[in-house]
């Protein structure tokens, strides 16, 4: 058996208030390829997806968390040993942004030191039609600047995305994959896990139609 592209596993945890579209985001990400590249999982709470970035192949193991406030205490169970995290908020819901801020802080305090975090304002599709003049009726309640500022403060990646349209979705994962320290990735590779189904690259054409991809063309996931 040959292993053309030994993938390295990256544990990525999804945090964010309930109903901000955490799992939709991931479902969009993982469903953007031919089905035979899919590894079946018990449910969408845990998903895997391979992503080729330059010469390295990353196999994301994506851990969804329950966003309800009452389950916040479960989060440490999930982000321990995570190498990456996506903190999601809804650009139309200020409360979700406040929550996201808390998550980022908590991650910096309690998760592994070199965790790569991306802050993602989701549901961009809802605010695309907003007009700059009509502040009152705009759907957007969290400005790009607010998000960017928080990300800059915390030294993390920032994206606005739409799970619905696919806008920027792949870029999040490419961004994280590029930022994750190489050594970290290498050391985290489990022996012989998930390494035999990497024949050939994933075809991008299947998802190109509805993808407003902005420059992340090298991701073959």
């Amino acid at each position: 058996m040959s292993f053309p592209n030994p993938a390295t596993s990256v544990k990525l945890v999804l945090l964010g208030e309930a109903a901000v579209g955490k799992s939709s985001l991931v479902l969009r990400f993982v469903s953007n390829d031919f089905q035979e590249n899919k590894e079946p999982t018990i449910g969408a709470a845990f998903l895997t997806q391979k992503c080729t970035i330059g010469s390295k192949v990353i196999k994301y193991e994506i851990w969804d968390t329950a966003g309800q406030e009452r389950f916040a205490s479960l989060a440490p169970m999930y982000y321990r040993n995570a190498q990456a995290a996506i903190v999601v908020y809804d650009v139309t819901k200020p409360a979700s942004f406040i929550r996201a801020r808390h998550w980022v802080k908590e991650l910096h305090e309690q998760a592994s030191k070199d965790i790569t975090i991306a802050l993602v304002g989701n549901k961009y599709d809802l605010v695309e039609q907003d007009s700059p003049e009509d502040e009152e009726n705009n759907m957007r309640k969290v400005s790009v600047e607010e998000g960017q500022n928080l990300a800059d403060e915390e030294g993390i990646l920032f994206f606005e995305s739409s799970a619905k349209s696919g806008y920027n979705v792949n870029d999040i994962f490419i961004g994280i994959g590029s930022k994750i320290p190489e050594s970290k990735v290498a050391s985290s590779a489990p022996g012989g896990q998930g390494s035999s189904n990497t024949e050939g690259r994933i075809d991008l054409t299947s998802n190109a139609a509805n993808n407003n991809r902005s420059g992340g063309g090298e991701c073959a996931c």
Binding site: S9, K11, I42, E61, W63, F71, S73, M77, Y78, P190
Partner: peptide, 16 residues
């Protein structure tokens, strides 16, 4: 790694 780990963590979280 993997799915097992996820569900084990979930059940630990649920227990907690």
């Amino acid at each position: 790694h993997g799915e097992t780990s996820y569900y084990l963590s979930s059940i630990q979280g649920a227990i907690g």
